[in-house]
Simulated assay, not measured.
Amino acid sequence: MAKVEIYTKAWCPYCTRAKRLLTEKGAEFVEHDITMGGPQRAEMIDRANGRTTVPQVFIDDRHIGGSDDLAALEAQGRLDALLNP
């Protein structure tokens, strides 16, 4: 199983949607809650090439993007291959 990380904030419906999809796929993930900012927020921005919105999803250290990007991979039938290399 791939290493999955997701940066989130509390009360974010897009974060909830992305986590739900990952859970439905059986993927375990590490969640970084950046609601209060801090060093993990700066880390996310750096890793996501300047993107500041949440969620930001990484699979095996590859930047996937946000909730819509994750859903698009699923719609294209490409998400399973990333989660189960």
Rank of each mutant, 00 (worst) to 15 (best):
A27D: 04
A27Y: 08
A27T: 01
E28M: 13
F29P: 05
F29D: 01
F29A: 02
F29Q: 02
F29V: 02
F29E: 04
V30N: 10
V30R: 15
E31G: 04
E31I: 05
H32T: 10
H32Q: 10
H32S: 08
H32D: 03
D33I: 06
D33Y: 06
D33A: 06
D33N: 14
I34A: 04
T35Y: 12
T35M: 12
M36Y: 14
M36Q: 15
M36E: 15
M36W: 14
M36G: 12
G38V: 13
G38I: 14
G38A: 12
P39I: 10
Q40N: 13
Q40H: 13
Q40F: 10
R41P: 03
R41F: 14
R41K: 15
R41H: 13
A42N: 07
A42Q: 09
A42G: 01
E43C: 06
E43P: 03
E43G: 01
M44A: 03
M44I: 09
I45F: 01
I45P: 00
I45H: 00
I45W: 03
D46H: 14
R47C: 03
R47L: 08
R47H: 09
R47T: 02
A48P: 06
A48I: 07
A48Q: 05
N49Y: 13
N49S: 14
N49G: 06
N49C: 03
G50H: 03
R51F: 07
R51I: 09
R51P: 03
R51D: 01
R51S: 13
T52S: 08
T52A: 07
T52F: 00
T52K: 14
T52E: 12
T52C: 03
T53W: 09
T53G: 07
T53H: 01
T53V: 12
T53M: 08
T53F: 00
T53A: 09
V54I: 14
P55E: 04
P55W: 04
P55H: 00
P55K: 02
P55T: 03
P55I: 00
Q56N: 11
Q56P: 11
Q56I: 01
Q56K: 07
Q56C: 00
Q56L: 08
V57Q: 01
V57N: 02
F58Q: 01
F58N: 01
F58V: 05
I59N: 00
I59K: 04
I59R: 00
I59P: 00
D60M: 07
D60Q: 05
D60I: 05
D61E: 15
R62M: 11
R62G: 06
H63C: 10
H63T: 10
H63A: 11
H63V: 03
H63D: 12
I64F: 02
I64A: 05
I64K: 02
I64E: 05
G65L: 08
G65I: 09
G65R: 06
G66L: 11
S67C: 15
S67R: 01
S67Y: 02
S67G: 00
D68G: 09
D68W: 00
D68R: 04
D68V: 06
D69C: 08
L70F: 10
L70H: 05
L70E: 07
L70W: 05
A71H: 15
A71D: 12
A71P: 02
A72T: 13
A72W: 00
A72S: 09
L73Q: 04
L73V: 06
L73E: 03
L73F: 04
L73A: 04
E74K: 14
E74V: 09
E74R: 08
A75L: 13
A75I: 07
